[in-house]
Simulated assay, not measured.
Amino acid sequence: MHKHFKIYKPYGYLSQFVNNGQKQHRKKLLGELGDFPEGIMSIGRLDEKSEGLLLLTTDGKTSDLINSSKVDKEYYAQVDGDISETAIKQLQDGVEIGLHGKKYITKPCTVFKLDTPPNLPERRKKLRDDRHGPTSWVSLTLNEGKFRQVRKMTSAVGFPTLRLVRVRVGTIFLDDLQPGDSLKVLDIESVLNVP
């Protein structure tokens, strides 16, 4: 019987359980955050500087389904500056980013500015504060997941990402998990509401 978990991946961790090379030798891995079953893998990835909801599974088919474009992923991004309506509209419509040395136009997505900063745990590594200029928070919901896509998108419209937190995958939410916490998910397919 396959096992599934949700975890709050903290800032500074790789989204994997095994080091894949010399450069990763001293990096922090997900296995340090709990006692997970044999054969567990992360579903998708969050880069080392990103944090938030990461799903884990022992089932490759479930991983493929969740990584597909059928399942939305929502992120909260704290960006440098007070993001404009023009920039939000550009993000919604799709922007050009670089991807493996080629130009790529992102698919249309749902983007809006948050009225107040989200209630998230403090990040261990401090961000710059408002003395260095204003910041704002946006919600971005995508159904694609290209390499560092959200960061590249906000930079493309002139508002680089300072902090990036995934808060939802399908209908699974980060909820009140704290960095490093994990929780078993009993029936991941029905929770995702994917046919």
Score class of each variant (00 low, 15 high):
99 L>W: 03
89 K>M: 13
108 P>E: 08
116 T>S: 14
99 L>N: 08
91 L>I: 06
118 P>K: 11
94 G>M: 07
104 Y>N: 10
89 K>R: 14
88 I>L: 12
111 V>M: 02
96 E>K: 09
86 T>R: 12
90 Q>L: 12
117 P>H: 12
88 I>N: 04
104 Y>A: 12
101 G>D: 08
108 P>H: 06
105 I>H: 11
93 D>H: 12
118 P>F: 13
110 T>Q: 11
91 L>T: 04
105 I>W: 09
102 K>Y: 07
88 I>H: 01
98 G>T: 04
102 K>P: 01
100 H>Y: 13
116 T>K: 15
113 K>L: 05
104 Y>D: 09
86 T>M: 10
95 V>Y: 05
96 E>S: 10
115 D>R: 15
94 G>D: 02
93 D>A: 11
113 K>H: 01
94 G>A: 05
92 Q>R: 14
114 L>Y: 04
114 L>Q: 00
104 Y>C: 13
102 K>E: 12
115 D>K: 15
89 K>D: 14
106 T>H: 09
88 I>Y: 06
100 H>T: 07
116 T>P: 02
101 G>L: 07
101 G>F: 02
103 K>Q: 13
107 K>Q: 15
99 L>Q: 03
118 P>H: 12
95 V>H: 02
104 Y>L: 14
109 C>P: 04
111 V>C: 04
107 K>H: 15
97 I>N: 00
98 G>F: 04
100 H>D: 15
118 P>L: 11
103 K>W: 05
104 Y>W: 09
102 K>R: 13
110 T>G: 00
117 P>K: 13
98 G>K: 12
116 T>C: 13
89 K>E: 14
114 L>A: 08
111 V>Q: 00
115 D>W: 09
99 L>P: 00
107 K>P: 07
114 L>P: 06
88 I>T: 00
113 K>E: 03
101 G>H: 04
85 E>V: 01
94 G>C: 06
99 L>Y: 06
110 T>D: 13
97 I>T: 02
95 V>I: 07
89 K>I: 09
104 Y>K: 12
111 V>K: 01
93 D>F: 03
98 G>R: 09
108 P>W: 08
113 K>Q: 11
112 F>M: 07
85 E>H: 05
115 D>C: 11
86 T>I: 13
88 I>E: 05
90 Q>P: 06
87 A>I: 04
95 V>W: 07
113 K>P: 00
99 L>K: 06
105 I>A: 04
94 G>V: 05
92 Q>A: 06
113 K>V: 01
114 L>T: 06
112 F>P: 00
99 L>T: 00
93 D>Y: 05
97 I>P: 06
92 Q>S: 08
88 I>A: 01
86 T>L: 13
100 H>M: 14
110 T>P: 00
101 G>T: 08
109 C>M: 07
